[in-house]
């Protein structure tokens, strides 16, 4: 009796989205063991670097998880990475702002952009796809405009066209460094903090429950007294805030603000959320799944990279594996 109960529980667990996402990750890891590129896959630095590389995408995916659970989508996150990378670099390198003030300004700008998209969705009833597509185009244009289309780096152009050179602000090196005996990149810690914050909001706060409620059935949520508009504003605002955080991390890792940074990052971030098992239809999912999705995509890219697989094959393989993983997720019982 006890044994069959256990089996029953095990069978149920195997069919949960979490187990499916974990299995996908394990399958990818096995691929890494098979194609270990002369043992490169077994080095700690490979895993550490993989986690650093996926961090910016992971931070974006945290915000997207909330928006997607709320039944929306945010296409502007990649452009906001570029915008905030440029803004942060201009404020710190060109204007000489202290790091704390520049960070605060960027976080504010990102949140404002997110709230604007949210406002278009909540107040003007625009489709999230359209509202955030508009923000995606607008923010990219703004990034190009304020930077004059050039990368913002420690080479500063003077009025006469000549270049002078300034020190890279300490905050860039601080964010680009590694801590804990060189074992974890700072940007990865930032990613983990974003994950924890999102998990806390979704699981512990009343607002987190509202997010699930409006994503599951907006009308029912409204009728049962959920403040739909405020919840949507907050969801998009949080997504914008995380995009700004990702923009800071991107700038720090490049030691410059590139107005082209983050192009198509929104697609990778959405793929991470969906591969984790969060439903694009809204109302179901979680940020733990997003972590698994991020690791899966991160390892996939890393394995293709250490094996020096050509670009064309990489794109085809990535596309195939995303489809397989999502089909696998569809079989999950919620």
């Amino acid at each position: 009796m006890k044994r069959s109960e256990l089996m029953q529980q095990g069978r149920q667990w195997i069919r949960s989205p979490f187990a499916r996402a974990l299995l996908a990750l394990i399958c990818i890891a096995i691929l890494g063991v098979i194609f270990n590129a002369d043992g490169a896959f077994y080095k700690w630095s490979t895993h550490r670097d993989m986690f650093r590389q996926i961090s910016v995408f992971g931070i974006l995916a945290c915000g997207l998880t909330v928006v997607i659970i709320a039944g929306g989508i945010d296409l502007s996150v990649g452009s906001l990475v570029g915008l905030n990378a440029v803004l942060f670099s201009m404020l710190t390198i060109h204007c000489g702002w202290p790091a704390a003030a520049a960070i605060a300004a960027c976080l504010l700008a990102g949140t404002a952009a997110g709230v604007s998209s949210g406002g278009l969705v909540a107040k003007f009833r625009l489709q999230p796809f359209i509202a955030t597509l508009a923000m995606m185009v607008f923010a990219r244009g703004l990034a190009k405009w304020i930077s004059g289309g050039q990368k913002v780096s420690s080479a500063v152009q003077q009025a006469d066209g000549a270049y002078s050179y300034v020190e890279t602000p300490a905050i860039f090196n601080a964010l680009n460094a590694r801590i804990w005996h060189d074992n974890v990149a700072v940007v990865s810690v930032v990613f983990l903090v974003c994950l924890a914050v999102t998990a806390l909001i979704l699981a512990r706060l009343r607002w987190g429950r509202y997010v699930y409620a409006i994503g599951g059935n907006e009308e029912a949520a409204r009728l049962s007294g959920v403040p739909v508009k405020a919840t949507q504003l907050l969801a998009y605002g949080l997504c914008g805030l995380f995009s700004a955080v990702a923009g800071l991390c991107q700038a720090a890792q490049e030691l410059q603000g590139d107005p082209e940074a983050g192009v198509s990052y929104e697609l990778t971030a959405i793929a991470i959320v969906v591969m984790g098992g969060t439903s694009l239809a809204g109302g179901r999912g979680g940020v733990g799944l997003t972590l698994l999705g991020a690791l899966t995509i991160g390892y996939l890219e890393k394995i293709l990279s250490i094996n020096a697989v050509g670009e064309a094959a990489r794109l085809m393989l990535t596309g195939t594996i995303i489809v397989v993983a999502v089909i696998f997720q569809k079989g999950a019982k919620r």
């Binding site: 590129a37 630095s45 490979t46 670097d49 590389q53 991107q250 890792q253 490049e254 590139d258």
Partner: peptide, 23 residues
């Protein structure tokens, strides 16, 4: 010993180089 497409992009070049360094 190692060649990869970095699509003219700095973040991608960094990524590929990390793989080269590991090997």
């Amino acid at each position: 010993v190692f060649e990869a497409d970095m699509k003219w992009l700095e973040p991608d070049a960094r990524k590929e180089m990390e793989s080269a360094l590991a090997r």
